[in-house]
Simulated scan of single mutants.
Amino acid sequence: MATEIQVTFDCADPAALAAFWADLLGYEIAPPPPGFDSWPEGLLALDIPPERHNDASAVVDPTGAGPRIFFQRVAEGKSAKNRVHLDVRAAPGLEGDERMAALEQVAERLVATGATRLERFEPALPLSAGQIVMADPEGNEFCLD
Rank of each mutant, 00 (worst) to 15 (best):
L127W: 11
L43T: 04
A101S: 13
A18Q: 07
E76V: 08
G114W: 04
F142R: 11
C143F: 10
L17G: 02
S128K: 12
Q105P: 01
A102M: 07
E104Q: 12
R68D: 04
I29T: 15
A124P: 01
A16F: 04
P32W: 11
P34M: 05
L118R: 09
A18C: 12
T8G: 12
V111C: 11
A15Q: 07
L125P: 15
A65E: 02
D145C: 15
V7D: 00
I5S: 14
D47Q: 13
G130C: 05
V60G: 03
D145V: 15
G96Y: 08
E28T: 15
A101L: 01
L94N: 02
A16H: 01
E119A: 15
A2M: 12
V111E: 14
A65V: 07
G64E: 01
A115H: 02
P137H: 04
R120M: 10
R83A: 02
R99S: 05
R120S: 14
E141F: 11
T8N: 14
D37G: 15
L24E: 06
V111A: 06
P14M: 10
Q131M: 12
A56G: 10
L125N: 12
V84N: 10
G114N: 05
E122N: 13
H85W: 07
V88L: 06
N82P: 01
M1Q: 13
R83W: 00
E138S: 06
E104P: 08
N54C: 06
L94W: 00
F70A: 03
A19S: 15
A12K: 13
N140K: 03
H85V: 04
L118P: 00
N54S: 10
W21I: 05
L110T: 03
A115E: 02
W21V: 13
M100I: 04
D87W: 12
A15G: 09
P126H: 07
G130N: 05
P49E: 11
A90Q: 12
A101R: 13
P62V: 10
P14G: 11
E122M: 08
E119F: 15
V133I: 15
F36N: 11
V106D: 00
I29H: 11
V88I: 14
G26I: 06
E95G: 06
K81N: 03
R52Q: 13
W39S: 09
A45G: 07
R68Y: 00
A58W: 06
S79L: 00
T8K: 13
R52H: 14
D97H: 11
S57R: 08
R109W: 01
L46V: 06
P92H: 08
